[in-house]
Design a protein around this nucleic acid. Structure first.
Lengths: 135, 135
DNA sequence: TTTAATCATAGTAATCGTTACTATTATTCT
DNA sequence: AGAATAATAGTAACGATTACTATGATTAAA
């Protein structure tokens, strides 16, 4: 009744996302998977990405560049977006304490009910800092 | 040399955004302004919105629904997104202290340089909570 | 206050990420 | 093996946004 069948393509998408720290877009996933399955279709990539997000096996990451990025690491962590090059990287600092305190604090003064929050960070990545020092 | 000329349309866009707490999309702005200027073009709205964002007179707000929302209130505040109806509302709690502490803490363990962060909150707005109690 | 320069506009076409559709292929159940 | 059904490839459609172009408005100078 669940009706979910195995597919090589879906497995390849998931494996790739779990193996990289790149936070790729759908198109980047497509191009990577195409190395192994040259005629996978872009639609298949999109469909499997949203399926995996629904299943909670993959996470959708916000970005500056207007298109969705994906992350196979579903553990609690946060993202840094370089305002120079747009690259997304992981923040490893544990913020669960602070964030749940903030959630409680904000909930106290709020009409509705808050059950989650998202935080992300902006700045210059290591590479872009190095580059700007040279020039 | 700055070359920025006055335009009624731009002023209307800015005034509307400063007068509402709705966090409208470009299309919503377009429909509102059309009441006063029936043949303003959608492109004009988009162009002025990004211009105003560049000038820092308006702020772009992230959302669930895939399209940009705008806010004429540029003071430090945060946003709540209702996961039921998608509506965006303001959070008035002051979090500057907590957030700058978090920024410092995260910066300590990070390769690049963090100069900002964004936080937003998810949950059910007052209206949607009322509705779900009825049914 | 005409003139010249240039910015902004309306209207339309093009772009880009994403989703929907359809006939075919793969997986699963019996 | 065969029937049932989910997943695929390929393509068309979609919606938000951007680009283009000829016309109109604003500014600065004569």
């Amino acid at each position: 009744m669940a009706g979910l069948k195995y597919s090589r393509q879906r497995e390849a998408v998931k494996n790739y996302l779990m193996s990289t720290k790149e936070h790729p877009t759908a198109d980047m996933v497509y191009n990577k998977i195409r190395e192994e399955y040259p005629n996978i279709s872009l639609g298949t990539v999109y469909r499997n990405l949203s399926l995996l997000v629904e299943l909670g096996e993959v996470v959708k990451v916000p970005s500056m560049d207007g298109c969705d990025h994906f992350d196979g690491d579903t553990s609690a962590h946060y993202h840094f977006i370089c305002t120079e090059c747009g690259r997304i990287s992981d923040i490893d600092t544990n913020l669960e304490e602070e964030l749940s305190r903030i959630n409680r604090e904000v909930n106290r003064g709020f009409d509705g009910y808050i059950n989650g929050s998202a935080i992300h960070f902006y700045g210059h990545c290591q590479d872009c800092m190095a580059k700007s020092k040279i020039s």
